[in-house]
């Protein structure tokens, strides 16, 4: 999943770098503030350990080429869970990814921003909050760590496919299907290893596992678990239904005005504009809504605009989700 250089146009790579830098800054602030005293060296040494962990390879559970396809653990979920903050994962994975990019050439320099967002930020945040929510709901650390590990690999893979599609270097459906399936299977290794590793750490050094014990079922957890389930289902189903052709209502409207034949996909652009004019005239309704980000793009900006629009949308949704869940839990 380490995206190399050359697969993003430079402008998009810059956008991802800027977003990644914001999270790197936040994670550095976390390391200074949240870790008791100034334990930055501890996290740095831990990053070296995580790098060693990543070299442990294992065969896929369902080997497509016998003995040929293997996977390894990224460790974002494990780091976030044990250290009790998603920023721990961002911090550690940034160090590891910079080393891999600059020293090994695994993952590009210009694409490093995107790699940090995918594996560090998304892996860490999804891993951490999934673990917390599932653990609070079902009181099963093992199960929670497994799901968290799986999600922390699957979501970044999906986002990686979307980023490459925005860059125009990998078709969306193909990317989602191949990357999705491959990482859904590899995710089993990540999940299983995270769960076993966590259970060992909890037994050996219970004092270092920074768990937030809330007790009882929280509305926020239900929202997070339900949200992730729905989002995942949509992510799997959507590409099969997403189409650049007009939807049913559009198609009926266009064919009623002769701008398109019902059974074909060709649209006569001139006639469709006339049809819109005719309807406005007939109904007398001149109201139109100018969307802030029409067609998932920011006007005046090319592809980086599309990337930013999607990221903006996701952030707004997350903010809304957290806001609503906090509101509900406060009432409770």
């Amino acid at each position: 999943m380490h995206i190399p250089d050359g697969f993003f146009p430079i402008s998009q790579a810059a956008v991802y770098w800027i977003i990644a830098l914001v999270f790197i800054f936040l994670s550095l602030r976390w390391a200074k503030k949240e870790m008791s005293e100034d334990k930055v060296p501890l996290v740095a040494v831990l990053a070296a350990g995580i790098f060693a962990i990543q070299t442990l390879n294992m065969a896929l559970p369902i080997s497509i080429i016998p003995g040929g396809v293997s996977g390894h653990v990224v460790g974002a979920a494990l780091a976030a869970i044990v250290l009790g903050s998603p920023f721990a994962a961002v911090f550690i994975l940034t160090l590891v990814l910079v080393l891999q990019g600059i020293f090994f050439g695994d993952g590009g320099i210009t694409a490093m921003g995107a790699n940090i967002i995918n594996m560090g930020v998304l892996g860490g945040f999804f891993g951490f909050y999934t673990y917390q929510s599932v653990n609070n709901l079902f009181h099963n650390r093992f199960c929670a760590a497994f799901i968290a590990g799986w999600i922390s690999l699957f979501i970044p893979a999906i986002v990686c496919a979307v980023e490459l599609a925005i860059a125009g270097t990998l078709p969306l459906t193909f990317g989602l299907v191949t990357m999705g399936i491959y990482h859904a299977v590899i995710g089993i290794i990540e999940g299983g290893v995270t769960a076993f590793a966590l259970s060992l750490i909890i037994h050996a050094r219970p004092d270092i596992v920074g768990e937030v014990v809330t007790g009882g079922r929280r509305a926020k957890d239900v929202v997070i678990v339900a949200g992730i389930t729905i989002a995942l289902s949509l992510a799997i189903i959507a590409p099969y239904y997403a189409s650049t052709y007009p939807d049913g209502l559009d198609s009926t409207f266009l064919s009623a005005y002769g701008a398109k034949d019902v059974t074909t996909v060709h649209i006569d652009e001139a006639k469709s504009v006339l049809a819109e004019g005719a309807v406005t005239e007939k109904t007398g309704n001149t109201f139109s809504w100018q969307a802030p980000l029409p067609d998932y793009a920011i006007p005046g900006m090319d592809k980086p605009g599309e990337a930013m629009a999607i990221i903006f949308g996701v952030l707004v949704l997350f903010a809304l989700g957290f806001g609503i869940s906090r509101f509900i839990s406060r009432k409770n």
Binding site: L42, S199, L200
Partner: peptide, 17 residues
């Protein structure tokens, strides 16, 4: 593999401490 990962994690944490 999970226990090995856990061991490396604890060893690196303790080394860090």
């Amino acid at each position: 593999i999970g226990y090995t990962v856990g061991t490396i994690f604890i060893r690196s944490y303790e080394q860090g401490e």
